[in-house]
Simulated assay, not measured.
Amino acid sequence: MISSATTPSGISVNASSERLVAQLIDNAKRLSVEVTKTHAGTVIVDAGVNCAGSAEAGLLIARICMGGLGHVARRIAFDPQPLWPSYLEVHTSNPVIACLGSQYAGWSLSATKEQTGGKKFFSLGSGPARALAGKEALFDELGYRDRHECGALVMEVDRLPPQVVIDKVLNDCGLAPENLVIAVTPTHSVAGTVQVVARVVEVAMHKAHVLGVPLEEIVEGSGSAPLPPPAPDGIEAMGRTNDAILYGGRVYLTVKSDAAAKRLATELPSSNARDYGRPFAEIFKSFNYDFYQIDAGLFAPAEVWISSLESGATYHGGQVNKALLDTQWRALGVTA
């Protein structure tokens, strides 16, 4: 748990990401996204439902998800035998607020078919507007809430949100309709794939939280993960993006104490989980597509380095599973 006294004061994830949101909207044509407004004035940025979207849009949305408190970049691997030719790098000096207070997809937003006038809707909201609503118990544990007149939310879903869901977000965040921006990024889209893989550090932070490691211990976070090609459907996309982190993700954390460093190096890697070793899409199918039946310990990076400020020592745990990724991704006709 982190108390309000140790939460960085004066940080507004919505204010910090406002400039990035403006860039996304102002450069819509170049980024291949579509910007529309509801009758009341709420801005909807479609980054892959009815338009192509782009990797660059995904990078910008990933930075928005982190509340403007992180750097996200796409790199090309020049190693003789790279894990994958394209990968993402992520860094934040405010890992608790950037990752758990903003980026984490923890806000459940749903509507029945009666409410939508068609079919039911479900999405997990991520991004800075979560900290305005504060509907998750996680915010009480973080001791963090944001107050700002504008907000941005990201929905990883394959359709645009119905008005009933938009109204709920506005009400819970206390925003005027014209001051809310919602970006929609289907997992199988280019932008969606990028913004999911960019969660490599967030996944490590969430696992640390699940393990009960005091979050105030973690002061810096960096990571990388291979960027797979977008998939033709949502299930396959979920499989590829999860495999990228669980079997190819590498994270480097700086913590305060040796005790925390040793524990995280030992317990954080995904290889500790019961379900480790099979492609995520296969695991998901084996549990009848019930996400919550999967061992929660699986959701972690493959390999970690943890440095201690107390002693200066660095501890290492886990390793990437290149063989599994090769088997899955070379089946697409791509060779290393």
Rank of each mutant, 00 (worst) to 15 (best):
I235G: 05
E236Y: 00
P230E: 14
A244R: 01
G212F: 15
G234L: 02
G221C: 11
D243Y: 01
H209N: 14
P230W: 13
E217R: 01
M238Q: 01
P230T: 14
L215W: 14
Y247N: 09
P214C: 15
E220S: 13
P228E: 06
P226M: 13
H209Y: 15
H206D: 08
A231L: 09
L215M: 08
A231V: 03
L215N: 11
E236P: 02
V213S: 12
G239P: 00
A225H: 06
I218W: 04
P226R: 08
P226L: 13
V210K: 09
M238E: 01
R240N: 05
V219P: 07
P232L: 00
I218M: 08
M238C: 04
N242D: 07
A225P: 09
A208C: 15
G221R: 04
R250Y: 09
V210A: 14
S222R: 06
G249L: 01
A231Q: 11
P230N: 10
I235Q: 02
A237D: 00
V219E: 06
V213Y: 08
G239N: 03
G221P: 04
E217L: 09
M238G: 01
G234V: 03
E236A: 10
E220L: 10
V219M: 01
A225C: 09
G249C: 10
V213P: 03
H209C: 14
I245Y: 02
I218H: 01
E220C: 03
L211D: 05
A208N: 12
P230A: 12
A231D: 06
E220N: 11
S222K: 13
H206A: 12
I218F: 01
H206P: 12
S224N: 10
T241W: 04
P232E: 11
L211S: 08
E217P: 00
V219F: 07
E236L: 05
I218Y: 13
L215E: 04
G239S: 02
G234A: 07
V210T: 14
A237N: 05
A231G: 10
A225V: 10
G249E: 10
S224E: 15
D243G: 07
M238I: 03
I218S: 02
L215S: 05
I235S: 00
D233R: 09
A237W: 05
K207Q: 08
N242H: 00
P232T: 03
Y247R: 09
S224A: 15
A225D: 08
I235T: 01
S222Q: 11
L246V: 04
D233V: 06
H206R: 07
A237V: 02
